[in-house]
Computed example of a mutant assay.
Amino acid sequence: MPRGCPFLPPGDYAGLRADSPVTRVVLPSGDTAWVISSYPLVRAFLADPRTTADRSHPAYPSILPKQPVSKAAAAGLLTWMDPPEHTVHRRMVVNEFTTKRVQAMAPRIKEITDECIDAILAATGEADLVQLLSLAVPSRVICELLGVPYADRALFDGLTIVILNHTSPAEDRMSAWRQLREYLSGLVTRKQHEPGEDLLSRLVKKYEDAGIFDLELLTGVANALLVAGHETTANMISLGTVFFLRNPDHLARFLADEDSRPQAVDELLRFFSIAEYSTSRVTTADIEIGGVVIPADSGVIALNSAANHDGSEFADAEKFDPHRDARRHMAFGYGIHQCLGQSLARLELQIVLATLFERIPSLTLAKPAEELPYKHNAAFYGIYEVPVTW
Rank of each mutant, 00 (worst) to 15 (best):
A72T: 00
I351P: 00
R108C: 14
D114T: 05
F213S: 11
T167K: 14
R246C: 07
S37P: 12
G333H: 09
L226S: 03
I161Q: 07
E318R: 10
L365G: 07
D325C: 04
V42I: 14
I351Y: 00
F271W: 03
E318L: 10
P149I: 01
V188S: 11
D286E: 02
E182A: 08
L217N: 07
V25W: 10
W177Q: 10
A33S: 06
R178G: 15
M330E: 11
S38T: 00
D128N: 05
R50A: 02
M236E: 06
M330P: 14
L129E: 01
P84G: 14
Q192P: 07
I212K: 08
P10R: 00
Y384T: 01
T23F: 05
F244D: 05
G240L: 11
E216K: 04
G30N: 11
F7V: 05
K100I: 12
A74V: 13
Q263C: 10
G311M: 09
V69P: 04
A331V: 07
I383D: 15
S56G: 13
A170T: 12
A317T: 05
L239N: 07
Q131F: 03
P322Y: 02
F213R: 07
I117T: 04
R17G: 05
C143A: 15
I163H: 02
F272P: 04
Q342C: 01
D114F: 03
H89F: 14
C116R: 14
G290I: 08
V282C: 08
T32M: 07
E115G: 12
I212P: 04
Q338C: 09
P9C: 00
W390P: 09
R328I: 02
V22A: 01
L16P: 05
